[in-house]
């Protein structure tokens, strides 16, 4: 009987090994362990043997059974893996075939600059204020210590609109009128920046547009000094342009500040060593600033003996252009998708 078991086992092994699909393996399984299989028939025949022989044959039969089950399971695993592989192979995708239906849109360079600047100033404790783009003479000039006959009016090439008395309504020439509106609306302390669109009667060329963008800052409190202005601008400069860029102030004139200053930063191209862009000076002019003029405080009903403040402002379009090496400001406003999609 032992021989018979061995023969059957060998035969079953060959069957398991030969099964090439799970289907075939199931048939082998039935043939080896089914009710009418040779092993089952042998097992039934155990009863007809003597005790010793029955024990030996029983053990052999069990061993054979276990061995075959193990092999069957192993073979099943192999065939299952192969079938899964085949099934997934049929699903293969070439991911480099994919052409995006649509790219994400690009934020306008000016907006990117505005948001970046706002984020830096918000981090420094400033709020962001806004105001109208069409302004009265009072907000754009008068309250900023630029009365009608002031020679400094010539500093701005103003665009007027046909509202109210002649020349009483302007397209704001700077964001400074927002200062006046902020101060009228609240008591100090004030720490705010005012980004926005401004207008000048300028013919468009590579560096001028009749419409462009400025950001302005205003700080008013009891104990504000010119040194605070210098320090705030230095801190902003480092935060926005990076720690290797420093700022300096040079005397200048604006009707709404006194003392007034030009705000220079290290040349962004050479970082201060001197190059063609900065004419070898290592500096580039960014904007204007100064201590809020007492007449401006008077125009909004603040007592200049009680409050002091500083203001600063600069153009944003050039910052946007510099960051990306764009050499013509008109590109910003052509809305050519070949330009927009680059950023």
């Amino acid at each position: 009987m032992i021989d018979e078991i061995r023969r059957i086992t060998d035969e079953a092994r060959a069957g398991i090994a030969a099964a090439s699909t799970l289907e075939e393996l199931r048939a082998v399984d039935a043939a080896v362990f089914g009710r009418r299989s040779a092993l089952t028939v042998l097992k039934r025949g155990l009863g007809g043997l003597g005790p010793d022989e029955r024990r030996a044959a029983g053990l052999a039969l069990n061993d054979a059974r276990e061995a075959l089950e193990t092999e069957l399971a192993a073979r099943r695993r192999v065939l299952e893996a192969a079938e899964r592989r085949a099934r997934l192979e049929a699903e293969r995708l070439d991911l480099t075939e994919v052409e995006p239906a649509r790219r994400r849109g690009s934020m306008h360079l000016v907006t990117q600059t505005v948001e970046r600047l706002e984020d830096v100033f918000v981090g420094m404790g400033f709020t962001v204020s806004e105001g109208p783009e069409v302004e009265t003479d009072f907000y754009n000039f008068e309250a900023l210590n630029i009365p009608a006959s002031h020679p400094a009016r010539g500093m701005w090439d103003t665009l007027y609109v046909e509202l109210g008395e002649p020349e009483s309504t302007v397209l704001r020439t700077h964001t400074s009128p927002v200062q006046i509106r902020v101060m009228q609306a609240q008591e100090p302390p004030i720490h705010t920046v005012m980004p926005g669109r401004v207008f000048r009667r300028d013919t468009a060329d590579a560096s001028h547009m009749p419409v462009f963008h400025q950001i302005e800052g205003l700080v008013v409190d009891r104990d504000i000094s010119f040194a605070d202005l210098a320090g705030t601008l230095e801190e902003f400069t480092a935060a926005y342009f990076g720690g290797s860029i420093h700022s300096r102030l040079r005397p200048s004139y604006f009707p709404f500040t006194e003392p007034s200053a030009e705000y220079d930063i290290n040349c962004l191209f050479c970082e201060g060593t001197g190059c063609r862009t900065c004419g070898g000076t290592g500096w580039m002019e960014l904007g204007g600033c100064g201590m809020v003029h007492p007449n401006v405080f008077r125009a909004v009903g603040y007592d200049p003996e009680e409050w002091r403040g500083f203001a600063f402002g600069f153009g944003m379009d050039r910052l946007a252009l510099n960051r990306h090496g764009v050499d013509d400001i008109r590109e910003l406003f052509t809305n050519d998708v070949r330009f927009l999609e680059q950023f």
């Binding site: 706002e118 100033f121 918000v122 981090g123 420094m124 404790g125 400033f126 709020t127 962001v128 302390p189 720490h191 700080v219 409190d221 104990d223 504000i224 000094s225 010119f226 040194a227 605070d228 210098a230 320090g231 705030t232 230095e234 801190e235 300096r248 102030l249 040079r250 005397p251 006194e258 003392p259 007034s260 200053a261």
Partner: peptide, 25 residues
């Protein structure tokens, strides 16, 4: 302004206003 100009803007220190404040949009 004249005092500042002739003292030299560059010789005036750089400080930051100290009042506590929260910036936000």
């Amino acid at each position: 302004e004249e005092i500042a100009r002739h003292f030299g803007y560059g010789r005036i220190g750089k400080t930051v206003p100290t009042s506590a404040r929260a910036g936000a949009l």
